[in-house]
Simulated scan of single mutants.
Amino acid sequence: MQLELHLIINRHAASGNAAKSADLVLSALDNKQISYKDYSTDYPGHAIDITRELLKTTLTPWPDKKANSRFPLLVILGGDGTLHEVVNALDQHFHIPIAYIPCGSGNDFARGVSLSRDPLMALEHLLEITEPQPYHVLHYLENIQEEEGYATNNIGIGIDAAIVARSNVSASKQTFNKFKLGSLSYLYTAIQVLTKQKGFPLMVEVNGKSVGFDNAFLCTTTNHPYFGGGIAIVPEADVKSKAIDLVVVERIHLLKLFRLIGQLLKRKHMSSPYVHHFKSQNIRIVSTTSQFGQADGEELDSRPFDIQFTTVERLFWL
């Protein structure tokens, strides 16, 4: 089946570095004489508006019922945040496939699905595929504000969300992104935030059992191994699995914390007595105190949380 590509391009991703990647991809498509239409985002949330308009006019579920037509394939050129917007704009249209060419600073989803972070190699991979594959994404329902959504990477409250909030307004992020060192930006900001983040009470409900923590520090629900631009928070997590992985880290003395960070970077942190790992198809977390929250690196308001997590299967052209 021939494709007509519909490219949503976030040229502002990775502090503007994505523009160069997008130009390379468009030039390659022109050289290959491949049919496409491109739509550039101009403001935060614009990818949502573009996707919803394409839903009304263009996009169809797989497989296309029109045997002789070009299949309209939605392609995202941007970072994890752009992908997050599109997945949520598609909502329950799980059979409309998404192709992805990573052009962000973190690119954790690309790492999680073993997709090349080189835009031209990702494009070649896209063009070789003949049908989409199902992958699982996180589905969450926040009961206090009745907020519902999806995440392709992870959702967290506590230190990781505080780092996201600080990193998104940090001048160092643009500096590191300029040299394609987005992971260092996350680590640099993390060190700045570590001393300020306090522990907080947390309740985790898994398989009908409740576990309480008096001094939680990090609480991250993830769909694959990576967060923070390539840090393997749950090395064995699998995006093909229905199960959700939740990691809770307790607040400990700063020296022990830096030792734990060293273990994290070496992927040896899961054996620490301060790291608690839960795995289930249904998980609930409750934080009664206001904390920063994040979903795929997108900030959630600082507030109490009562979140129910499951996974749903959706199609990706990967």
Score class of each variant (00 low, 15 high):
residue 101 I to H: 02
residue 312 V to K: 15
residue 4 E to W: 02
residue 202 L to Y: 02
residue 254 L to M: 12
residue 265 L to T: 03
residue 145 Q to N: 12
residue 93 H to K: 11
residue 54 L to D: 04
residue 159 I to K: 00
residue 35 S to H: 09
residue 10 N to Y: 02
residue 151 A to P: 01
residue 30 D to R: 09
residue 193 V to D: 04
residue 138 L to M: 07
residue 281 Q to Y: 03
residue 62 W to A: 13
residue 284 R to W: 02
residue 255 L to F: 12
residue 52 R to N: 14
residue 197 Q to R: 09
residue 76 I to C: 15
residue 190 A to K: 03
residue 176 F to N: 00
residue 25 V to S: 11
residue 91 D to A: 15
residue 283 I to R: 08
residue 25 V to M: 05
residue 287 S to R: 02
residue 270 M to Q: 14
residue 119 P to D: 10
residue 206 V to N: 04
residue 235 P to S: 08
residue 260 L to N: 04
residue 143 N to A: 14
residue 57 T to N: 13
residue 74 L to N: 10
residue 53 E to D: 13
residue 267 R to Q: 15
residue 173 K to F: 08
residue 126 L to N: 11
residue 245 D to E: 11
residue 128 E to P: 01
residue 110 A to G: 10
residue 32 K to W: 09
residue 66 K to M: 07
residue 296 D to I: 00
residue 116 S to G: 07
residue 69 S to F: 07
residue 240 K to F: 08
residue 124 E to S: 15
residue 202 L to T: 02
residue 97 P to Y: 08
residue 105 S to P: 05
residue 222 T to M: 09
residue 306 D to T: 03
residue 273 P to L: 06
residue 130 T to H: 13
residue 186 Y to C: 01
residue 281 Q to T: 15
residue 211 V to N: 06
residue 18 A to V: 05
residue 15 S to H: 13
residue 116 S to Q: 07
residue 60 T to D: 03
residue 26 L to D: 07
residue 75 V to C: 05
residue 250 E to K: 06
residue 306 D to E: 10
residue 35 S to L: 12
residue 138 L to P: 02
residue 102 P to R: 00
residue 227 F to V: 12
residue 248 V to Y: 00
residue 264 L to S: 05
residue 240 K to Q: 13
residue 250 E to L: 02
residue 201 P to C: 01
residue 18 A to L: 02
residue 318 L to Y: 07
